[in-house]
Design a protein around this nucleic acid. Structure first.
Lengths: 274, 274
DNA sequence: TCGGTTATTCTCATCTTGAGTTGATCTCAA
DNA sequence: TTGAGATCAACTCAAGATGAGAATAACCGA
């Protein structure tokens, strides 16, 4: 068995001789599925591509991961960093994402006509914010209702949909939506879509919008308050009732739970199980 | 607005001028967390590295994703294909993985001393199989009980652990274990660890081994049979009772459910919620 | 044959859920 | 000013799911 010193020497020798250029070129990008709830609709941040490939089409914000270049002009960055950077650059605004998680990686050959590209997709949740396109320098960035994109089963866009997404971004978006819908069930991430303080009804609207179905208001209320750590009372209430009447609602903050126990299950999922 | 024909021409021009070598080199690898249940222990397939870096250390099976090389000697392969190929190559055996899913991507700068490497990790479940190391050509491959690796909180290996894993593979493994434990709750994937036909007790042993806690046999039995599509009776029973007595057990196949409704929740998780 | 082990089924108290109702509070428009 | 309609919050009640324990029967090895 080698001693540690000998092992270290071999490793150093090896690295000195190592030539990264010997491998065929593969590029790594990050793409971000940034979701928000606006006007009682689930919306995704899209940018219109200025350059080929797919110039003129809508795409998820994203771009190449920066890595150490020969002249040292660019330095390595972590994948999540790159996701935040691209989101900030392309959205124009510093998006206050209340949540960012890795969604998955997409590397099917031919998904990018330029070369072999592996894309690491991220999923971000943001509370409603001012329209980002105003003042955006680079490409046109806009919140688009996901319902308008005609997403079908496996992320295929239905024929006749006006906004065709570039690359395999329709598929990535579909996966992101699936993940988001599932995560609302067993995590308190719905709170990432609202600004604090918020009411139980605002939270319910997030669920109804993301899931696309009405929930029983009374049961939802009971559930949210009974799950430990989901929300935390501020002791305050709204200053006025709702726009269509009703009493003032109590205000809450996010709680400290990272998982909902028991979970808040989506109604009518039993059929989709097979 | 451009016509489609004009758009296509621009795209073609662009691609003709595109030089992939202009970008700094990034490599993409796949690594596989392959799990099985053997001898009432959760085990992971590890290979001992023959080459630097980390020569002599244990690592997850994996390697570089093949992509189109200049001389056409290698062609593109999809990421999941690459995972299966590496698993087969490094394990020596054609591993009958009953399940393979993407776990996540790891790209922190410096995680590979050679160059910037993004690793796409996969998670595989396999039923108990003959030891793979026998007959393996390449490196030494072996099923190792995960408990022997001394994994701590964030995938840190506790000091004193004899088998130190290469790269950030301890972290990847820890993430894989978390995912596996969670997936047993709401999917029928426990059945991927057993060979058909199987008994309810064999299935319970999978849960107990992966979760590391005893389950109430009666309640587990009721639950498994009551969740629609989890298992399907073969009508047969084992030919003899268990090695330590007991009646013959009924035999089952995997059902057609992809999700368990309601889920089979892990006991005593309420505290880990914060 | 007997003691110990295991598979399967029951019981029962407790918890959770779905659906509906009630009462109080508030906005808007007549 | 007032009444209709909407909303918040709490409550009821039946049905379903869960956790703990026990009962029964089949089977092993000694």
């Amino acid at each position: 068995m080698m001693t540690d010193a000998a092992w270290g020497q071999d490793e150093a020798d090896f690295l000195a001789r190592y030539d990264p250029r010997a491998y065929p070129p593969v590029a790594v990008t990050v793409d971000v599925v940034a979701l928000t709830v606006r006007d009682a609709e689930l919306q995704v941040l899209l940018v219109r591509r200025a350059e080929p490939p797919f110039a003129g089409r809508w795409a998820l914000p994203g771009g190449f991961v920066r890595s150490q270049s020969a002249d040292g002009a660019e330095s390595d960055e972590d994948l999540a960093e790159a996701a935040i950077r691209e989101l900030t650059e392309e959205a124009g605004t510093r998006l206050r994402t209340a949540h960012l998680e890795q969604l998955g990686s997409y590397g099917t050959p031919g998904r990018d006509p330029r070369m072999r590209v592996i894309s690491v997709a991220y999923l971000a949740f943001a509370p409603e914010m001012p329209e980002p396109s105003a003042g955006s320098d680079a490409a046109e960035a806009q919140w688009i209702p996901v319902a308008s994109l005609g997403l079908g089963e496996r992320g295929q866009q239905r024929p006749g949909t006006s906004r065709k997404l570039a690359f395999d971004h329709a598929r990535i978006l579909a996966d992101g939506l699936d993940r988001a819908r599932a995560k609302l069930e067993y995590t308190p991430l719905a709170t990432a879509f609202v600004t604090e303080p918020f009411t139980v009804s605002e939270l319910r609207e997030v669920y109804e919008t993301v899931w696309g179905e009405k929930l029983h208001a009374g049961n939802f209320h009971r559930k949210v308050l009974s799950v430990p750590g989901f929300v935390e009372s501020t002791g305050e209430t709204t200053q006025a009732g709702g726009p269509r009447g009703g009493p003032r609602a109590r205000l809450y903050r996010r709680g400290d739970a990272r998982l909902l126990h028991p979970a808040l299950l989506r109604p009518g999922q039993e059929e989709e199980v097979r």
